[in-house]
Design a protein around this nucleic acid. Structure first.
Lengths: 235, 235
DNA sequence: ATCCATCAACTGGTATACACTTTTTGTCGG
DNA sequence: CCGACAAAAAGTGTATACCAGTTGATGGAT
């Protein structure tokens, strides 16, 4: 053989495995809110929908269970995890601690290329915000914002820290939006905070960078006063 | 009627699943040092040794991979992860941050029963240390010490924090012993530090408790001076 | 009518068989 | 003797079949 005929899927580059496919698909369903808390995750149904067998589905569900997005109990149907206000507060508190630490480390380690990338990302976020409305912008914003934080986490050069931030401390956007302030209010502030974090990193000032990141995250934290009780049944 | 005849294994209480069995067995092999860094983890071989099929073995290996104890690459044999000095330092730094926070929270939340349990555990550790020699005591100490830290982590009432501490920041004892001070030196200090943490918790003083835990963990951290370069090729 | 036992359908748990990739090993040519 | 190539061996990835436990409905007894 010798001529490289990949005889099946023929995605020449990297045919990602079935479990990767399943994992990302299901994770996306949950994080975007297409599946809501309590929805049933039936292995057969998911297998049919995604087009693989039950085996990779099970591996994917186990990973999501470990990450806390899915609840699995023995012989019981898997369901999408429920996130209470307390859960949201806990996640943001831990993110503040760990991402603050990561930002502090990043301040003395981040490369010029990564700094330029961060500037680029923030510029894109602000540009798209101006050009598109809120609704059009939202999904793109989440992606750009995610990369912004991911670049900083990677620059901390602490692989376990990076992994924890990426896998154990995610909150579905639908839940986040329920508990946080409305987007119009929070995102204008977010841009200013991102710029401050960037300035602190460029100044190579760990304490400032950490404090700015902490301020950013705590500002997103649901107002701890238990005033928000709107159980919208809408939709 | 339904008399409760469990018709197979007959462990009346909770017959733990095959993947639980496999997970704990393999994890134990790694944490105790029975398997060393770089050792191959062959699914068939493990399946035969543990007495289950490959399926639960694969689930167990995936969990251990997520925890960082095992390295899996597609189509490649799994191996026991390698922990460099840098890895050990990283783990202890993150443990200090997170377990310090947990201890701070625990100070205002821990129950009287848990406090008594901690006293009991510390008393046992010291008693067994006096009665048995070092070698006899070691495995028992690890177990008691593990529970000591686990009780505090649980008392913080932050389930994600507890899970991260229990799953993502473990270091195999064999590696720990290679990088840390000799047991005789470190454990006498450990007892004093445990007593101080306990005192701070009983005093309900979060700052003191956090600082004491931080001191405890940083004292176990390998001496950051890069003096230890012994690449033993022995065995 | 309500409650409980029982049973059937459903769902998850495990084992096994097959497909694809890597790794090893043996052979040939230099 | 060494390196490149090729075929066989070994190992992982996925699919499927089968087993075990749960769930919920059904029917009878109270």
């Amino acid at each position: 053989m010798t001529n490289e005929t990949t005889r099946d899927g023929a995605k020449d580059g990297a045919t990602q495995s079935a479990v990767e496919t399943a994992y990302h698909r299901i994770r996306h369903l949950i994080l975007t809110g297409e599946m809501r808390s309590g929805d049933k995750l039936l292995e057969n149904q998911l297998a049919a929908a995604i087009g693989v067998s039950r085996t990779p589905i099970r591996e994917a569900l186990n990973r999501l269970n470990a990450e806390g997005l899915v609840v699995l109990e023995r012989y019981r149907r898997g369901i999408v995890a429920d996130f209470s206000l307390d859960d949201a507060v806990e996640i943001f508190r831990l993110r503040a601690i760990l991402e603050g630490h990561a930002t502090s480390r990043a301040a003395t380690r981040i490369s010029q290329a990564d700094l330029r990338r961060l500037e680029e990302l923030e510029r894109l976020m602000e540009t798209q915000f101006e050009e598109l409305g809120w609704n059009e912008h939202l999904e793109g914003f989440d992606k750009l914002n995610g990369e912004f934080h991911a670049v900083i986490a990677a620059a901390a050069e602490s692989p376990r820290l990076e992994k924890i931030l990426a896998s154990s401390l995610e909150l579905p956007a639908s839940i986040f939006n329920r508990y946080s302030e409305p987007v119009e209010v929070r995102t204008r502030r977010t841009h200013a905070q991102h710029r401050e974090i960037l300035a602190a990193l460029k100044a190579r000032n760990p304490e400032w960078a950490q404090a700015a990141m902490n301020a950013h995250l705590f500002s997103l934290l649901p107002s701890a006063s238990g005033s928000l009780e709107h159980e919208d049944g809408a939709e």
